[in-house]
């Protein structure tokens, strides 16, 4: 404090106060940022609407306005309230409860004011909301032989392309196994919703989780 300006008590107090304020707001900001980073991951059961940007970009683009939620004619979308594992205020659906009905005009994307749901998505069949994954080697009725079930196959909007029933053989018998083709799967969740087992034997996962790629939705 050699300078006479910095030494004057009024000015010095002002500087001290500024430093204190900047410091405290900096700490608050860092806490926020840490909390936000943690909040920017999607749990396995939450699927973004069609056209959603990669999760990292989505967190910056989505303003949490809910226009997509209100545009959905089937009312499947929800904005995550505080306390849900989904990043606060962002839209998602739970395929097991209500899957995407794959509207041809994609009203949720049309309603999005920020491009968080990208308008580059013209055809709903190009959507990659998630990837269906067969998890029921020991539960699926068709595989275990409990019933001749093909509910997931019948429910798939891209039947024969995204899901096929592939002939397999065990030692004792032949059976058909639901088989997902990720290149065609939109992640709509119809298969998971239709699955007849108590816990679904086929599940849609967020692409980022299924592919371990944070750049994917």
């Amino acid at each position: 404090m050699a300078g006479k300006d910095a030494g004057s008590p009024g000015r010095r107090r002002f500087i001290e106060r500024c430093v204190a304020l900047a410091g405290s707001s900096g700490v608050v900001g860092l806490l926020l940022a840490a909390h936000g980073r943690q909040a920017a991951a999607l749990p396995a059961w939450a699927i973004r609407p069609p056209g959603a940007l990669a999760e990292e970009d989505f967190a910056a683009a989505c303003v949490r306005c809910g226009l997509c939620v209100q545009a959905c004619p089937f009312d499947i979308l929800e904005l995550a309230p505080l306390g849900r594992a989904v990043p606060l205020g962002t839209p998602y659906f739970v395929a097991r409860q209500a899957p995407c009905e794959m509207c041809a005009d994609i009203p949720c994307v049309a309603a999005c004011p920020t491009e968080a749901l990208s308008k580059a998505l013209d055809h709903i069949e190009d959507a990659r909301m998630g990837i269906a994954v067969f998890t029921g080697a020991d539960t699926c009725y068709a595989v275990t032989g409990f019933a001749e079930c093909r509910a997931c196959f019948m429910a798939c909007p891209l039947r024969g392309r995204a899901i096929t029933m592939e002939r397999r053989h065990s030692e004792s018998r032949g059976y058909f196994q639901p088989t997902v083709h990720p290149d065609a799967c939109t992640g709509c969740g119809k298969c998971e919703h239709a699955c007849a087992t108590v816990e679904a034997s086929i599940k849609v996962l967020p692409v980022a989780l299924a592919r371990h790629d944070p750049r994917a939705p």
């Binding site: 900001g29 926020l32 940022a33 936000g36 967190a59 989505c62 303003v63 904005l79 505080l82 306390g83």
Partner: peptide, 29 residues
């Protein structure tokens, strides 16, 4: 902080939008 974190930072805590969004879309906690 938004630039560094790639997040809309204040929307993680903003009580205004948490309350209003809660009333329209579901409150949670």
């Amino acid at each position: 902080f938004s630039a560094v974190t790639g997040l809309i930072v204040w929307e993680l805590v903003n009580p205004i939008t948490i309350l209003q969004r809660g009333l329209v879309f579901g409150m949670g906690l």
